[in-house]
């Protein structure tokens, strides 16, 4: 499938990623080349193959559901550009 500007704008929306109008044509062209390149995989016969999600075919290790971390909120919030009263602030969501 050939990617259009509309396709790329929709993918960018799904990724919550702003692509400026001046960037868009370049992104459409390069993304198109990447998709065309990976499309060659369609020629491979994988009909009898089990998908491999993980290189060691391992499953997620479980641990006891216990608290292992202390509260580091103040330390963590030093990396945020906008906090107030120990909370992260964002533009108003609920009118």
């Amino acid at each position: 499938m050939k990617l259009t500007r509309q396709n790329v704008a929709q993918i960018a929306h799904l990724a919550r990623l702003e692509i400026g109008p001046e960037e868009l044509d370049g992104v459409v062209e390069k993304l198109g080349r990447i998709v065309e390149f990976v499309d060659q995989l369609q020629l491979a016969d994988t009909s009898a193959v089990t998908p491999m999600a993980h290189p060691m075919d391992m499953s997620q290790r479980l641990r006891a559901d216990t608290v292992t971390e202390a509260d580091h909120r103040d330390l963590y919030q030093q990396n945020s550009a906008a906090v107030a009263d120990g909370l992260y602030t964002v533009p108003r969501v609920i009118e």
């Binding site: 990976v38 193959v49 089990t50």
Partner: peptide, 10 residues
């Protein structure tokens, strides 16, 4: 499809 091809490579 890529996950299947990954197994062929492995």
């Amino acid at each position: 499809k890529a996950q299947k091809a990954r197994r062929l490579i492995a």
